[in-house]
């Protein structure tokens, strides 16, 4: 009996070690421990063994059974491992690059715009939008730009033919001409006409000037304007906004200053300079960054908000100019060429 068991163990050891597939394993399992298996047959012989030998033999058979089971478990593990290995294939070279192009990128102008909108949102400004095709009223008249002002001239502003008709750009007067807006201030007028203050909007968008394209000029570019109209809005509030915007954008040691200036739709009006460390390619202490002022009473009264009750401020700047300052870009045309070597730098 003992010799039979030993032989069985040895054979099982040798057979199971060679097993690689599930059918082989199933067959081996049946051969050993199945109802007609060899080990089962030996166990069945227990009854014919003298009684006093039974405990020792029982122990011995259990040992053999445990050993065979362990061998089967190990074989199963090898089969499963083998199956997975076949499924996943040989090891790959993880140092090879992905062939997929990407990742996608947002245009730097979008990134700068969104960063400004996030900064402004924190102090209650929401984004307003308006048409790029505008009329003389929204772009000029309502903003206190006299009819003979040079900015309105066909030399500086793109106009559409007199007979152009837009189904979804409303005119204020029937005889107005359509034009391409020269600033996003037209959005301020459309917003002011929608309802009473308080109003606190930021209007980023595309604007057009009839200008030679060169390193700093482009036929279309982007502006971002803020408008706040409420009771008792003051010059000091305006300065506080500018300080807030640029310290948020460029760090605590950033300073802004106002220089008196002239714009038709604000009074008083200022140009805004900023001074910041670590701006690339800037070698002046102060850089002009935008224009601002207190909304002229004429503008407020013109859109039906009593300037004795309401006051407000407006601030505007060029997004390309800001992006050029932030990133150290020296040619505005790069924004419009979309060379991927450019776009990927701002991911």
């Amino acid at each position: 009996m003992e010799s039979l068991l030993s032989a069985l163990q040895e054979k099982a050891q040798a057979d199971l070690a060679a097993i690689r597939t599930r059918p082989e394993l199933e067959a081996a399992k049946a051969r050993l421990v199945g109802p007609n298996g060899e080990l089962t047959a030996l166990m069945k012989q227990m009854g014919s063994v003298p009684k006093e030998q039974r405990p020792a033999l029982g122990k011995r058979i259990n040992e053999a059974k445990a050993l065979v089971q362990a061998l089967l478990d190990a074989a199963l593990q090898r089969v499963v491992d083998g199956e997975i290995a076949a499924q996943v294939g040989p090891a790959i070279d993880v140092s090879l690059p992905s062939p997929d192009a990407g990742p996608g990128t947002f245009h730097p102008l979008t990134q700068v715009r969104e960063e400004m909108c996030r900064i402004l949102r924190k102090v209650g400004f929401t984004v307003a939008d308006g048409p790029e095709v505008e009329t003389e009223y929204y772009c000029f008249d309502a903003l206190n730009t006299p009819a003979d002002h040079p900015a309105r001239d066909a030399q500086d502003t793109f106009y559409l033919p007199r007979d152009a008709a837009f189904a979804n750009v409303s005119k204020h007067r029937a005889d107005e001409r359509y034009l391409l807006r020269t600033h996003t201030s037209s959005v301020q007028i459309r917003t002011l006409l929608k309802g009473p203050p308080p109003i606190r909007i930021v209007s980023p968008g595309r604007v057009y000037r009839r200008d030679t394209t060169d390193a700093t000029h482009s036929a279309n570019f982007h502006q971002l304007e803020c408008l706040y109209v409420d009771r008792n809005v003051t010059v000091r509030d305006l300065k506080a906004l500018l300080d807030y915007i640029f310290t948020s954008l460029l760090g605590k040691d950033t300073k802004t200053r106002f220089r008196p200036h002239y714009f038709g739709y604000t009074e008083p009006s200022f140009e805004v300079d900023l001074s910041a460390r670590h701006l690339p390619k800037v070698n002046k202490e102060w850089i002009e960054i935008g224009g601002c002022g207190m909304v002229d009473p004429i503008v407020l009264d013109g859109v039906g908000h009593d300037s004795r009750v309401w006051s407000g401020y407006a601030f505007g700047m060029g997004l390309e100019r800001l992006a050029m300052l932030l990133y150290g870009i020296d040619d505005i045309r790069y924004f419009y060429q979309n060379d991927l070597r450019f776009l990927r730098q701002f991911a």
Partner: peptide
Amino acid sequence: GTERIPATTVTGPGLAEDDDPVV
């Protein structure tokens, strides 16, 4: 002198408005 405008913090109540749907 515009350089003498004193600094302050931005104040103003939230307006509970959403950004324009187009945006």
